[in-house]
């Protein structure tokens, strides 16, 4: 099973200036599985997921110790950051479509990676939108501004945008927190389909969501992974009393 780890963090410490946000975090994320990161606000789960495709590089004053391996290779030393992000895509908390048309949003990634051929782009856009279960809804308004579609559609557009780059891993940082229940359930359905082709890591503060969609769960608390394991085990038979308290809604 060890060879099946797509991503694995080994003893990661992270500092914002003097403040330590992650303490000795180690976690394996398996291929074609959904790994959920749960925990109360400010526990470091978002910080951790941002480490996985080096999005914390953007923020000033962040120092990271420890190694993160992607396919057994160190993401820091063995990868160029651009290459890494092409393979490990990310969907954010708030839908963040670019202020351009639906089509351009999806074609953005392929274009910057050098695909110029118009028919090829059309193809990629259609496949990605279909994969994101959005094609039918937007096929008539591909060339309208993306900001004109609904919030749930925007988030799926963002997922399509990530898929268009053809990544192997999709990171999702609370992708449904800004959405209504119907949109949320559509995205959950989508995640279920996507995991056939992609490895998915998702941050959520929604217990039920984690329970519904994930195969593995890690519980973060104050920058530490308190417990991780198969989702059923974490939810129904946690070893740690803190985990149990959180799962049952006693705090958080």
């Amino acid at each position: 099973m060890v060879e099946n780890n797509k991503l694995s963090a080994k003893r990661v410490d992270l500092f914002y200036g003097d403040f330590q946000a992650l303490h000795d975090v180690s976690l394996n994320m398996e291929k074609n599985k959904v790994t959920a990161l749960i925990g109360p606000s400010g526990c470091g789960k978002s910080t951790f997921i941002r480490c996985l495709n080096r999005m914390n590089d953007v923020i000033e004053g962040v120092t990271i110790h420890g190694d993160i391996l992607y396919d057994g290779k160190n993401i820091r030393t063995d990868f160029d950051v651009i290459e890494l992000r092409k393979q490990i895509g990310m969907v954010f908390q708030k839908p963040n479509p670019f202020p351009m048309t639906v089509f351009e949003n999806v074609a953005y990634g392929p274009k910057i990676h050098g695909i110029k051929d118009k028919t090829r782009l059309d193809e990629i856009v259609e496949t990605s939108l279909r994969d994101a279960a959005l094609w039918d809804e937007v096929k008539d308004r591909l060339h309208k501004p993306a900001l004109g579609i609904s919030g749930g559609q925007q988030q799926r557009l963002c997922i399509a945008r990530v898929l268009a780059v053809n990544p192997e891993v999709v990171l999702m940082d609370e992708p449904t927190s800004a959405l209504d229940p119907i949109s949320t359930s559509r995205i959950e359905d989508l995640i279920d389909v996507l995991k056939r082709d992609y490895t998915i890591v998702i941050v959520t503060h929604n217990m039920q969501q984690a329970g519904r969609i994930s195969d593995k769960t890690a519980f973060f608390y104050q920058g530490v992974i308190v417990e991780d394991g198969p989702t059923e085990k974490i939810f129904f038979n946690p070893e740690n009393p803190q985990t149990e308290a959180y799962i049952t809604g006693k705090f958080g």
């Binding site: 999005m55 953007v58 895509g89 954010f92 963040n96 202020p99 953005y108 910057i112």
Partner: peptide, 26 residues
């Protein structure tokens, strides 16, 4: 918004591509 910048970077765009293709149009 910072989200746009991060969205573009997360797609594997260089910082310059992000500036010229996302930030300036926005």
């Amino acid at each position: 918004p910072r989200e746009l910048k991060e969205g573009s970077l997360a797609l594997g765009a260089t910082y310059w591509q992000t500036i010229i293709r996302t930030l300036i149009p926005a």
